[in-house]
Amino acid sequence: AELQKFLEQENSKARIQSQIHTFTQLCWDKCISSIGNRLSNNEEACLTNCVERFLDTSIYIVKRLESQQHH
């Protein structure tokens, strides 16, 4: 049971890491236009908001699908 719990946690970590790569790609494309000596405040805020709003979007879609199935 300990081993299984360990493997499940690693599995969950692998999924999270894979999501981080996907989100970095998506939000890099949306938020970064030119390459400077540091990220601007706007770019940093855009990256954080991009992750948060993408997750909101996913939740919105699932909730709306669920509500439609109850009609």
């Binding site: 939000c27 949306k30 938020c31 855009c46 908001n49 709003r53 993408f54 909101d56 979007t57």
Partner: peptide, 12 residues
């Protein structure tokens, strides 16, 4: 997300 959230802000 690509089509509708062109400039992600602090809320939808």
């Amino acid at each position: 997300f690509t089509k509708c959230i062109t400039k992600p802000s602090t809320k939808l």
